[in-house]
Design a protein around this nucleic acid. Structure first.
Length: 239
DNA sequence: GTCCAGGACC
DNA sequence: GGTCCAGGAC
């Protein structure tokens, strides 16, 4: 009699267990280590100069990197602050057409360059400022949101801000973490649980991108995944 | 041809 | 939630 009720209880408990999530982000560095061992250091961001890095950050918004590469190649020697500052909007747009949203992005490149002018296009002058101040300035630029701002802060300005993108969310979801809704909440909880080191920040984001492309694709390819041992999606605990 | 991935702003 | 876009997958 009690046996039946107890069994139903067990099943209810099991059901609850499979739908719950990781409680904390304390083991994030384990994820980092596994990805680093699997893929090796990525040495991101792929750019010749800090300015090219910032340009790439805008061009890659909602766009695959191959299309950005075409745009960067197309700009060639014109990939300079002086050219962008002076070029007609339409001409600039044509150069970067392959990266999509080219009218918006042409204007955004001009906005970025206008901001950079106050540092006389000198990255060291910008780096001399506090990260928080730079972040506020970048976010005030029309066309630069949190992800683009943090990419620029991390990869061009050497400031400790963790970059959150769609790949980051997808991977962490699948691993089983409970993600805060907002960008900054997620960024800060990650920052509180990883080593405060520029290389770790830079590599971790790059490794997440690599992982999202090789294994944690939209349709996951879990075979031989370097984090399958700790992944809750792989273990059927989350969908 | 249609569909889709992918940030920021309105 | 709608809009901005090219290019690759199908």
């Amino acid at each position: 009699m009690g046996g039946m009720a107890a069994r139903q209880n067990d099943q209810a408990e099991i059901k609850q267990k499979v739908t719950c999530k990781r409680e904390t982000f304390e083991d994030l560095m384990d994820v980092y280590q596994l990805l680093l061992e699997a893929y090796g250091p990525r040495h991101w961001w792929p750019a010749e100069t800090p300015f090219e890095m910032m340009v790439g950050a805008i061009l890659t918004q909602n766009t695959t990197w191959v299309n950005v590469e075409k745009a960067i190649r197309n700009m060639g020697k014109r990939l300079t602050s002086d050219y962008i500052a002076a070029a007609p909007l339409e001409e600039l747009g044509e150069l970067i057409r392959s990266s999509g949203y080219f009218r918006q992005k042409a204007q955004r490149l001009k906005n970025l360059t206008e901001w950079y002018a106050q540092y006389t296009y000198d990255i060291e002058k910008a780096r001399a400022r506090k990260g928080e101040a730079l972040r506020a300035e970048l976010l005030a630029i029309k066309g630069i949101g949190p992800e683009t701002a943090d990419s620029i802060l991390l990869y061009a300005l050497d400031k400790l801000f963790f970059v959150i993108d769609a790949y980051t969310r997808r991977i962490l979801e699948r691993l089983g973490y409970t993600l805060p809704q907002t960008y900054d909440e997620l960024r800060m909880v990650i920052e509180q649980n990883i080593l405060a080191d520029l290389t770790v920040y830079q590599e971790f984001h790059a490794l997440l991108v690599e992982h999202a492309k090789r294994h944690c694709t939209k349709e996951p390819r879990c075979c031989a995944c370097p984090v399958e041992g700790i992944c809750w999606y792989r273990q059927g605990k989350v969908t």
